[in-house]
Amino acid sequence: EDDHHMEFCRVCKDGGELLCCDTCPSSYHIHCLNPPLPEIPNGEWLCPRCTCP
């Protein structure tokens, strides 16, 4: 699979289990988001950068 997502968290710059945005290459740990997510959501997810007006 050709995955163009970042291999590190945009916030802390560390790797591991990352949540990938469905519209851009950004990846995040769920605990690095503000507010943090309790678990990885099902379905499409947009990062804070893509949901800002």
Rank of each mutant, 00 (worst) to 15 (best):
E1W: 00
E1P: 04
E1L: 06
D2Y: 13
D2I: 15
D2P: 06
D2E: 15
D3M: 15
H5L: 05
H5R: 14
H5W: 13
H5Y: 14
E7T: 02
E7L: 09
F8L: 08
F8D: 07
F8Q: 07
F8T: 09
C9A: 01
C9N: 02
C9D: 03
C9H: 01
C9L: 01
R10L: 12
R10I: 12
R10Y: 12
R10Q: 14
R10D: 08
V11W: 06
V11C: 06
V11F: 05
V11Q: 11
C12F: 00
C12N: 02
C12K: 03
C12E: 09
C12I: 02
C12M: 00
C12A: 01
K13F: 06
D14M: 08
D14P: 00
D14H: 07
G15P: 08
G15C: 03
G15H: 04
G16V: 01
G16A: 03
G16N: 07
E17M: 09
E17D: 06
L18T: 05
L18M: 13
L18S: 02
L18D: 00
L18K: 03
L19S: 05
L19H: 07
L19F: 06
C20F: 11
C20S: 14
C20I: 14
C21E: 06
D22I: 04
D22R: 11
D22A: 13
D22E: 11
D22Q: 10
T23P: 01
T23H: 09
T23F: 06
T23K: 11
C24V: 02
C24W: 00
C24K: 02
C24H: 00
C24Y: 02
P25S: 09
P25W: 10
P25Y: 06
S26F: 11
S26L: 10
S26K: 05
S26M: 15
S27C: 12
S27R: 13
S27W: 07
S27K: 10
Y28P: 02
Y28T: 03
H29E: 01
H29K: 00
H29S: 02
H29N: 03
I30M: 13
I30Y: 09
I30W: 06
I30S: 12
H31W: 05
H31I: 06
C32D: 02
C32G: 01
C32I: 00
C32E: 02
L33D: 03
L33Q: 03
L33M: 05
N34F: 08
P35S: 06
P35Q: 06
P35C: 04
P35I: 04
P36F: 03
P36V: 06
P36Y: 03
P36L: 04
L37E: 06
L37T: 06
L37H: 07
P38C: 07
E39W: 05
I40G: 12
I40F: 11
I40E: 14
N42L: 10
G43K: 13
G43W: 03
E44C: 06
E44Q: 09
W45Y: 05
L46T: 12
C47V: 03
C47S: 03
P48C: 01
P48W: 05
R49Q: 13
C50H: 05
T51D: 15
C52I: 07
C52D: 06
P53H: 15
